Amino acid sequence: MSGVEPPDHVIGLKRFEQYIFRTQPEGVRSGPGDLDLTVYSLRKWLRGKAGRPELIEKYGFDTKFAMHMVRLGVQGVELLETGRITLPVPEPWLGWLRDLRQGKKTREEALEAAESLEHRLDELVRGASPLPEEPDAGWADAWLVRAYLRAWKMP
């Protein structure tokens, strides 16, 4: 799916704040191969009308917003490929994101990176991810109890 709102919103026939796409009806839990997607309006950002005025004035777009947009895609791909998120973001993406934030990348480069990451996320969500179909809820619950007991300093 595209990262820009649907055509009837773009041309102004409908007001747009966010767009939600689900392969399952509302209220039905998503399963393997299902897609839950929320698209927030990028039109204002593309026109340079949203975000931080000082960055828009200096670089022509909100570089901080763009950096976070790409970072979230990078981290989503890593999570679905490995089951983990590395902090801070490892190279080469760390340097790329810093360059974007500092205005050394263009808005077009940011959008191309985000689109590429979005396609990879779509592939992973539709079955290419090596992660199990269901989480290990028992393990997660036990870990949470142990964490609380440690925090409370109980045996």
Results as ranks from 00 to 15, higher is better:
V10I: 06
G12L: 05
L13H: 09
K14W: 05
R15K: 13
R15C: 09
F16I: 15
F16P: 06
F16H: 15
E17F: 11
Q18P: 03
Q18E: 13
Y19G: 12
Y19A: 15
I20W: 04
F21H: 14
F21K: 11
F21R: 13
F21D: 10
T23I: 03
T23P: 12
T23S: 15
P25M: 10
P25F: 13
G27Y: 09
S30M: 04
G31N: 14
G31A: 02
D34E: 11
L35T: 10
L35H: 07
L37R: 00
L37F: 09
T38H: 02
V39H: 02
S41V: 03
L42C: 02
R43C: 05
L46H: 06
L46D: 14
L46R: 01
R47F: 04
R47V: 05
G48E: 13
A50W: 10
A50N: 12
G51R: 03
G51K: 00
G51S: 05
R52T: 15
R52Q: 15
P53C: 02
E54T: 00
E54C: 00
E54Y: 13
L55A: 09
E57V: 06
Y59K: 01
F61P: 12
F61R: 10
T63Y: 05
T63N: 05
F65E: 01
F65S: 11
F65L: 09
A66L: 01
M67E: 15
H68T: 07
M69H: 14
M69T: 07
M69C: 01
R71Q: 08
R71K: 14
G73D: 09
G73N: 05
V74E: 01
V74G: 00
G76I: 07
G76T: 07
G76D: 00
V77G: 00
V77F: 04
V77S: 02
E78D: 04
E78S: 04
E78T: 02
E78K: 07
L79V: 08
E81H: 14
